[in-house]
């Protein structure tokens, strides 16, 4: 049996070698990407998988502690689970607001009218703005002592006392709004592309059958948009789980963890900021946390893909 495989293997290696010679140019072109991928993705993942079993603060030598980092995560770190809860609240809130708003704006701006292109550009603009700058601007708008929003509301007699939009009770909702504001333009573009791919003749025949605009929306537009919707939901989910920039600048996860999210917590384990949870770098624990966070996102993604299979069957 073994002897019979040898010629096959040899011929396969020969084919690969021949293929390499024939496609040398292609291999050379993808080589930089492969190197970068290995350097900035494979190596860090390997690093994390190693150090998640260590206590390591970059000053002392790493100490192997087996599964203790994971035991700590699951039994001795309630703050992490608070950040997980906040993260899911943030992701859910951002998803529930971003999708309908971006979709409605896309439907409105898909119609040709004077200035529609300009409006599309204006709505898209926050997407190209730095998240940190955006958060600083929102701080100027929302702070309770000189914020533009409170000032305007007080001038309009809507409130008599400034509202602390960034307080313990409001901070998480506020960072969701900031996140939504930054995301709408991006997903509007996806929806616009989807809307423009729906064939006009379907609408025309529906009109001939006397179908109104609301029914057209629910019976034609939304079903035809399902593939785009699936992609957009996936993108919103993954990007929202990783949103930390604007939160870090706007609230630093505070007050007292009210707006803290899991990847910001992981970040602080590597780069302690303002001594809120750790004043010493905890690389090993941070590595273990990032594996748990990645697993949580992986689990959500799998659940989502299974759910969308059912949606595919429905339509």
């Amino acid at each position: 049996m073994q002897t019979s495989m040898k010629p096959n293997m040899r011929s396969r290696i020969g084919t690969v070698g021949k293929g390499f010679k024939e496609n040398k140019q292609i291999y050379l072109m993808i080589l930089p990407n492969v190197i970068m991928f290995a350097l900035f993705s494979i190596y860090p993942i390997g690093w994390v998988l190693k150090y998640m079993f260590y206590q390591y603060d970059k000053i002392n030598d790493p100490i192997f502690i087996g599964l203790d980092n994971f035991v700590r995560i699951f039994t001795r770190d309630p703050y992490f689970w608070k950040t997980v809860t906040n993260t899911f609240y943030y992701v859910g809130g951002k998803l529930l607001i971003t999708l309908p708003v971006a979709f409605v704006i896309a439907v409105l701006l898909n119609k040709k009218f004077f200035g529609s292109r300009l409006m599309q550009s204006i709505v898209f603009m926050p997407t190209i703005m730095s998240a940190s700058v955006m958060a600083l601007i929102f701080y100027l708008i929302l702070n309770p002592y000189s914020g533009a929003l409170n000032t305007a509301m007080m001038k309009m007699n809507l409130i008599s006392v400034p509202i602390n939009w960034l307080s313990y009770y409001n901070a998480l909702d506020t960072v969701i709004i900031v996140g939504v504001w930054g995301a709408i333009g991006n997903y509007m573009v996806y929806f616009l592309a989807g809307l423009q791919s729906v064939p006009e003749d379907i609408y025309e025949s529906a009109e001939l059958d006397g179908i109104g605009p609301v029914r057209k929306m629910f019976c034609i537009t939304i079903p035809m948009m399902t593939p785009v919707l699936k992609t957009v939901v996936m993108l919103v989910l993954i990007s929202s789980f990783q949103d930390i920039q604007s939160i870090m600048v706007l609230t630093e996860g505070g007050p007292n963890g009210a707006s803290d999210v899991m990847f910001l917590y992981v970040y602080r384990m590597f780069f302690p900021i303002s001594a809120t949870t750790a004043s010493t770098s905890q690389f090993g624990y941070g590595a273990a946390l990032s594996v748990v966070c990645a697993s949580l996102i992986g689990a959500v993604t799998i659940l989502y893909l299974r759910a969308t299979r059912k949606v595919d069957d429905m339509f």
Binding site: Q55, D57, I59, N60, R72, R76, D77, P78, Y79, N256, G257, A275, T276, T277, A278, S279, T280, Q282, Y285
Partner: peptide, 12 residues
């Protein structure tokens, strides 16, 4: 120095 305190710091 180098204290690895589990949970929130006393500041927080």
């Amino acid at each position: 120095t180098n204290l690895v305190v589990e949970g929130e710091s006393y500041y927080n």
